[in-house]
Write a protein that binds this DNA or RNA. Structure first.
Lengths: 241, 241
DNA sequence: CGCCCTCTTGAATTAAGTCAAATAATGTGG
DNA sequence: CCACATTATTTGACTTAATTCAAGAGGGCG
């Protein structure tokens, strides 16, 4: 029956209809492969702002692909202090650090209403066993995460406060641009204090820096709304640091 | 012929004879699987102190398992400044961040005479396709690296200098212990300035802290030779920070 | 509409950095 | 194997970038 065909087509390949699927999943996959992937992926109800996707210590069983919104990942220091590790944007994968110990090693909290695809990891592994390109892709994604983490380590090691803020703004700009959004105008979903924490600085310092950058004509920052006016000079701040 | 059998046995399964193979390669692998792994691994001549294993930007084709010695990984900032990312010990894998872009993204330099096994990555991927446990193991290793990097990010974000040094000493202690060496007495292969760089501090600060820790009876530091005398209190320094 | 939380701004403090110099270790060529 | 050159480490004095403390302004949410 024709209707059956139509049904199958609409049920399957949700990934292909997803605006960001080429970010989280491999471009090189064949149509049939994507269908297989679709079958193991669970769609989740939207996650409200402030809701946790998972918490450090919980049993690990799935990784998550962020479809929309944004998520903050963080560690809890013994003293109870929170250490922000990063901000995830649509297309990013979450939970990869939990693979090794069967528990999530960080916590992930939505910064705004967000949606994710849950990918049961064991099933994904089995699928990787069948689809060579998928195995490679997962390894690539993990590799990229390692690379990004190294850059974060480098940024926070010696760069002065100015360069750190410039750096995170430029990184976000790149990441938005890569997702098809403006590289110069965007909304921050995270608070000043999240940014401060992530950069190893005090909130007050971030606040002063935004003011200072505005005075210098490098950007405008109206609350969460940021316009980068002089990307070239911002890059110089990072580089000459 | 009996001699052939002996030859085969001695040529193969070098991994199994390697004192650290259970660190870099999966414990769960069957004997035949390890033999397959052995076949793709290239043994390399020893690397002299100060020699590079690879440099950022070079074509990526292999990852390396450190067999002996120690290696420092670092990034070069645009300004030419070096940012130390980490220190690798026997059993650690190097070069994982190069998988995604076909180039190494950091540089690796031997801190002392060291030896590595070179593992051509494409061949390893093919083998992962056949051996499920191996695929899982590689993903676990990458996951652990992500986890460790997150901890480094956290350490350098807000902890005072004291806690940072205590933290790296305890981490090294753990890692030596895990490799069957003493947890309380070891030699640092890296310079004070490497430690400083890795922790985002000045050399002078590290030097002063070692003196201070000695005065407090927390450790003795004779040049590179370290004895941890009060691990409990060192942990407290990290935790109460 | 008002409370709360985030953000901003100012002033004082401090942890860590920089600069400078002495000392100790390491390596090199003769 | 020694003397010298070079590099790494330590220590002290001073400086500074960023923090902390304090207080006010601005938005957003119930």
């Amino acid at each position: 029956m024709a209707s059956t065909v139509i049904d199958l087509a609409s049920v399957r390949s949700i990934c292909q209809q997803c605006g960001i699927y080429n970010l989280c999943m491999p471009i090189g996959l064949e149509r049939g492969d994507i269908d297989q992937l679709d079958e193991i992926i669970k769609r989740r109800r939207p996650i409200a702002k402030g809701e946790h996707l998972y918490r450090a210590g919980e049993d690990f069983s799935s990784i998550y692909a962020l479809r929309s919104g944004s998520v903050k990942t963080y560690l809890n220091h013994v003293s109870g202090v929170e250490h922000v590790i990063g901000f995830k944007l649509p297309g990013d994968l979450l939970g990869l650090s939990g693979i090794s110990g069967s528990h999530y090693t960080n916590s992930a909290i939505a910064l705004e209403t967000s949606s994710v695809c849950e990918i049961p990891f064991t099933q994904l592994e089995d699928l990787c066993q069948e689809i060579h390109g998928l195995q490679h892709h997962i390894m690539e994604i993990m590799s990229r995460e390692i690379q990004e983490d190294h850059e974060k380590i480098a940024v926070c090691h010696k760069l002065p406060a100015e360069a750190r803020l410039a750096s995170i703004l430029l990184t976000l700009s790149d990441r938005f641009h890569h997702r098809g959004y403006s590289a110069t105008e965007f909304n921050l979903s995270m608070s000043r204090s999240d940014i401060a924490n992530m950069l190893g600085l005090a909130v007050e310092t971030i606040s002063r820096l935004f003011t200072h950058f505005e005075e210098e004509g490098l950007l405008t920052a109206d609350r969460k709304h940021i316009k980068l006016l002089d990307i070239k000079r911002l890059s110089e701040i990072v580089q000459t640091a």
